[in-house]
Amino acid sequence: MTGAPNPSYDNILEIKNLQTSFFTKDLEVKAVDGVSFNIPKGKVLGVVGESGSGKSITSLSILRLIEEPGKIKGGEILFKGENLLDKSEAQMRKIRGNEISMIFQEPMTSLNPTFTVGQQISESFRIHEGLGKKEAKKKSIEMLKLVGIPSPEKRINQYPFELSGGMRQRVMIAIALACNPDLLIADEPTTALDVTIQAQILDLMKELQEKLDMGILLITHDLGVVAETCDYVAVMYCGKVVEFTDKKTLFTEPKHPYTVGLMQSVPQHDQDVDGDLAVIRGSVPSPADMPQGCRFAPRCPFATDLCRNKLPDLETDEEGNQIRCWIYSDEWDGDPEVNVHEQSKSTS
């Protein structure tokens, strides 16, 4: 652990106005464009969005793992009250894999094929806790047991290719949790897995989260996963948070037209949809051609001139829910009776 713990924080992570951009010859792609959210201690925050929403770049920014030509341009990332953007690279290394860990989407490619499972878990213990080879191996076996891998003494000497996708993701979790992190960032941890394996992994994550009392930042595009695992949800679109609320509010009364559109356009296995699915018309704008007003305006069925010309702020209501949409502001110039839950169904 680095530094004296700062007991004054309520949020394990607090992101304020984070901006991460990728620079090409003549273009700045604002992948993360002023993102703010926080994760209370020991809670699970889901970040939902489609590709291009900036959700993965946000997570990599937290660990400062953005590579050229990307750059974190501004904002604050307060972890236990301390701004990670002020830390040196050496200090960051002590935090990575120790206080903040990360697991990724592709268990098939996220483990190094030339090292055994044991070597890869041991490495964390050796870097962060300075353990010797033997002790690290012993603790690695314990970790494998913790994540539910049968006969860990045997598995520890195997190479990743000898394990199934689900097993590999368990190994990834073992690596991530080795040093008892306070925050786990999970970037689409179950997207590449089959549903029965996904259920196992989600169960495991929930169980360990309670046991170890850590915060989780869960990035996903699957609303079902959010519903089953998260306490809070941030919905992202085009590099911005458009809605931030607790899970129950999100699923019972979503406010942002994009959130509503997402929910209605995904067919669920336990609900029938009559006729066509609701659709969000058009597609995500290209970074080179970002709308100047609300990013969602060109696809939003309720958009007015105000939406098209002026970017709404992320406003916080009295219950602490946040929304970035003109409909909920005093300036709204459209139909005052508008119901965002009634979207049109069209095939275009």
Binding site: V195, Q198, L202, G224, V226, M263, H269, D270
Partner: peptide
């Protein structure tokens, strides 16, 4: 299989 799918129905 069906029971393993996460549901949005809280």
């Amino acid at each position: 299989l069906l029971s393993a799918i996460p549901s949005t129905d809280l």
